[in-house]
């Protein structure tokens, strides 16, 4: 536990100072944290043994909500746009969740994928509204009422994102240790007993799905602001697959896992794109194979000293 805490604090400290010495890394790190948030949402569902191949839906829905609001000058303030985007994806998760939590395993995963692909098609085809494949530009909003230049805006967004990630991770860690989190794990291990405790597995999974959608939405809202542009690619199945990839790469044994996975994913993608531009997907694939065979608990498992063992939550951090 002490080891995980020290590592967590060291990771936060390293993240906090890195952009000060390497300003080029600010956007990359912010994108990694946004993907880490979506992967944290995937991790919550994986605790119930369910995997969503469609979380690009909530990521993109929130991003487009921010893009529309920013363009309409309704909310030209980042600190308003972020929670509004998150709430929009939460609302969508509340609706989609009513349907998908009735299913398990491959059906759960494929239904999420199907719904996200419907949304992807709408974003592509409704050109007059969404801008089609070109997407929509997101005008740079104010930050706490202040109009920043590009670099200052990126730096401010990064630090707000870092704080939001810490808060989200702490909340998820608490939730996983709570009766609701344990009931969520029980869906994976024994749904029958859960029912005979008088607990509805559907309600438990619905709550987790809602949380998962909110986390993906938080990531999507921030990525819209930091990239200044949204495209249908945010809803594409490849993006959803990346979130699952990141969650497995990072490990689901603790809430730091998805963020570790996202950072590693960005590093591999960045370097592989430079040194192996034609085969960087293969590099990612090999990396995942190594993790699955030699460290099934993911990067978090290695850090927490549980490298070879499948993960089991102990402290959530």
């Amino acid at each position: 536990m002490a080891r995980q805490l020290v590592f967590g604090l060291a990771l936060i400290a390293a993240l906090a100072v890195f952009p000060l010495f390497s300003p080029w890394s600010t956007v990359i790190l912010t994108v990694a944290l946004c993907e880490g948030l979506a992967a944290l949402g995937i991790m919550v569902l994986l605790r119930a043994g369910q995997v969503s191949f469609g979380h690009g839906l909530f990521f993109s829905f929130s991003a487009y909500a921010v893009a529309f609001l920013a363009a309409a000058k309704v909310g030209h303030e980042a600190l308003v746009l972020i929670p509004v985007g998150m709430a929009a994806s939460g609302l969508l998760a509340a609706i989609v969740g009513l349907f998908v939590v009735r299913y398990r395993a491959i059906f759960f995963g494929m239904l999420n994928l199907a719904i996200s692909m419907v949304f992807f098609s709408l974003l592509e085809k409704l050109f007059p509204i969404t801008g089609g494949a070109d997407g929509k530009r997101v005008p740079r909003p104010t930050f706490a009422g202040i109009e920043f230049g590009r670099e200052q805006f990126e730096l401010a967004t990064f630090y707000v994102t870092l704080v939001l990630c810490i808060l989200a991770a702490l909340f998820v860690a608490r939730y996983l240790l709570s009766p609701g989190g344990k009931a969520l794990e029980a869906i994976k291990s024994n749904e029958t007993r859960l029912e005979y405790l008088g607990v509805s597995p559907r309600k438990v999974l619905y709550g987790a799905y809602l949380l998962s959608g909110l986390l993906a939405g938080l990531g999507g809202a921030i990525i819209a602001l930091v990239s200044g542009h949204v495209t249908p690619e945010l809803a594409y199945w490849v993006r959803s697959g990346e979130f699952v990839f990141i969650a497995i790469l990072g490990g689901i044994g603790g809430v730091a896992g998805p963020f570790l996975g996202a950072l590693m994913f960005q590093i591999i993608r960045g370097y592989a794109a430079v040194y192996a531009p034609e085969t960087w997907h293969a590099v990612l694939g090999v990396m995942l194979l190594i993790i699955i065979f030699f460290a099934p608990a993911g990067l978090y498992g290695i850090v927490a000293g549980k490298g070879g063992k499948p993960q089991r939550e102990e402290g959530g951090r």
Partner: peptide, 24 residues
Amino acid sequence: LFLDNTVIENLLLALSAREGSWSP
């Protein structure tokens, strides 16, 4: 039972269900 949990966690989840204690 919830095989990957401890014995007491199995009982505590039952207790939480009985008491309706679902605070995160």
